[in-house]
């Protein structure tokens, strides 16, 4: 088990989250079952009051979750110093069987929380509050996801063994490894890049056609192609090492924390892309999505170009 101050801090906040999220969960169930806009009895008024409490609790959790996610990565980085063999957070994630699921779930939950807040905003705009039942219904599901995340996090930190040798990111993300990720490297870089840029091109096309479902779909696929090309190709240019395929090392200070910028652009771009389909489509969402996705593509392309200009060759 690992009991560094960072892990303790994360745990304390997780306990706090569990308490508040559970309160909101119980109230959400009540609201979901009994909500009736037309009723004028005391019960309905009380439910309206609860809906305010739920909204601030969820907002509170989300706005702390974002910086806490960064802190979580920081923490893994720090733990990697204690674990023999680990070079960056990737080694810590790989140290237990839960790490990968946890990270995926954490990111998924960030998307879900952000979606919830968008829905909430939408709901409050209309006098009839059409989405109230829906949004608290969604929260009930979100709560379960969130609890699994917190449980996984606890189990992960509990089962990390300081004395065990873990693998370093360069072996996890290498073509010789047997993990699922490594199959990526057997793919041809040219094909991968064509898919990546092609995908981006599709986003632009659907932007002009304003077809919300196709636009959102191309954004979902973009998350995948962006991540794969990032690991297989773009990342190596950040490290300036053809063999280093880690999606987390560039979050470190050695690379000027550029990873945070990369992931932030991707998150905002694709999140707004998705929200076009899931919420009312608005010009603003289309635009934000396109701008951030473009910035993402431009930033990564620039990294390649700058490398080429500086070194005269490609890796």
């Amino acid at each position: 088990m690992l009991l560094t101050p960072e892990v303790l801090t994360l745990s304390i906040l997780n306990v706090l989250f569990v308490i508040f999220a559970t309160i909101a969960f119980v109230l959400s169930v009540k609201i979901y079952l009994n909500w009736d806009m037309n009723s004028t009895n005391q019960k309905q008024y009380q439910l309206e009051k609860y809906s305010f409490l739920n909204a601030i609790v969820i907002k509170y959790i989300f706005f702390i979750k974002i910086p806490l996610f960064l802190f979580f990565i920081f923490t893994l980085d720090k733990i990697s110093n204690i674990l023999t063999g680990a070079m960056c957070s990737a080694g810590v994630i790989d140290a237990t069987e839960y790490g990968t699921y946890l990270i995926v779930l954490k990111i998924l939950n960030l998307y879900l929380f952000a979606y919830w807040l968008k829905l909430h905003q939408q709901d409050k705009k209309d006098e009839k509050q059409l989405y109230t039942k829906l949004k608290f219904g969604i929260y009930i599901a979100l709560y379960l996801f969130f609890m699994v995340e917190i449980a996984l996090e606890g189990i992960m930190f509990y089962s990390i063994d300081i004395n065990k040798l873990v693998s370093c990111c360069s072996s996890i993300y290498s073509s010789s490894s047997t993990s699922a990720i490594s199959t990526i490297f057997s793919l041809n870089t040219k094909i991968l890049l064509s898919i990546f840029y092609g995908n981006f091109f599709l986003i632009i096309i659907f932007y002009f056609f304003k077809n919300r479902y196709l636009f959102a779909l191309s954004n979902i696929i973009f998350i995948v192609t962006a991540l794969i090309t990032l690991i297989a190709f773009f990342g190596t240019y950040i490290y300036e090492l053809p063999s280093h395929h880690c999606p987390l090392c560039f979050l470190k200070s050695e690379y000027n924390y550029i990873g945070y910028l990369i992931y932030l652009l991707l998150f905002i771009g694709t999140f707004y892309g998705l929200s076009v389909a899931l919420l009312k489509k608005s010009r603003k969402n289309y635009k934000i999505s396109l701008i951030f996705n473009s910035l993402y593509v431009i930033l990564l392309s620039l990294i390649i170009i700058v490398y080429y200009i500086k070194n005269g060759v490609l890796l």
């Binding site: 806009m37 037309n38 004028t40 309206e48 305010f52 409050k124 006098e127 509050q129």
Partner: peptide
């Protein structure tokens, strides 16, 4: 007015 949600 009597049917308005709190914010409205």
């Amino acid at each position: 007015i009597s049917k308005l949600p709190d914010n409205f």
